[in-house]
Amino acid sequence: MITPDYCREMARYNAWQNDQLREAIYGLPVAEITRDRGAFFGSILGTANHLLWGDDMWMARFGAGPLPEIALAESPALTPTPAAWAGARRRLDMRIIAWADRLAALDLVGDVSFFSGVEQREMSLPVGLAITHFFNHQTHHRGQIHTMLTQAGAAGPVTDLIFRKR
């Protein structure tokens, strides 16, 4: 389904996208970043925090770090400020890249099993599907943030994978 090269490309795409979000967020007043815009996780910062939490959760499931200390419902408040989010985001992006760089084809075979707090049960998925979901989840929520940035008057970042400099 996927290859280690796909994972490496997507890990770098993720970091590139988050670098652009960081720049866009820094250009806005805190009131705009924390304003509830009716998104599922409320604000720009709430959605960015949820995505940070979700990435950390998946890294733990993939054996690349500990489980987050808070539950999904608390994820929008994971970091209190844009600066705290930016630092945590950069550290996690570097961990995701390091994880992807270590992957071998054999690591993408088999299942990943975990307890889902949302489903309240043990789950098992093909690891390739779980990794594809991981990267898709990032893209989904960054799309929401992109819309909210536009609503706040910021220029939305370039999101097309083909424009990432290699």
Rank of each mutant, 00 (worst) to 15 (best):
M1P: 04
I2V: 12
T3L: 07
C7Y: 01
A11P: 00
Q17A: 12
N18K: 05
E23K: 09
Y26E: 14
G27E: 07
L28A: 03
V30L: 11
T34L: 12
R35V: 07
R37H: 15
A39N: 12
F40G: 08
G42Y: 13
S43W: 15
G46T: 03
L52H: 13
W53D: 06
W53N: 03
D56G: 08
M57G: 00
A60E: 07
G63P: 02
G65V: 02
E69Y: 01
S75W: 09
A77S: 08
T79G: 02
P82V: 05
W85T: 06
G87A: 11
A88T: 11
A88M: 10
R91N: 10
A98V: 03
W99R: 02
A100T: 06
A100L: 03
R102L: 12
A104R: 14
A104S: 15
D107V: 01
D111K: 13
V112C: 14
G117R: 09
V118E: 10
M123A: 12
P126C: 11
A130P: 03
I131H: 00
I131Y: 00
H133A: 04
H137I: 03
Q138K: 04
T139A: 04
H140V: 02
H141Q: 05
H146Q: 06
H146A: 13
A152Y: 01
A152D: 05
A152P: 00
A154C: 06
A155V: 15
G156A: 12
G156P: 11
G156Q: 01
G156T: 08
P157D: 05
V158C: 09
L161Y: 07
R164F: 08
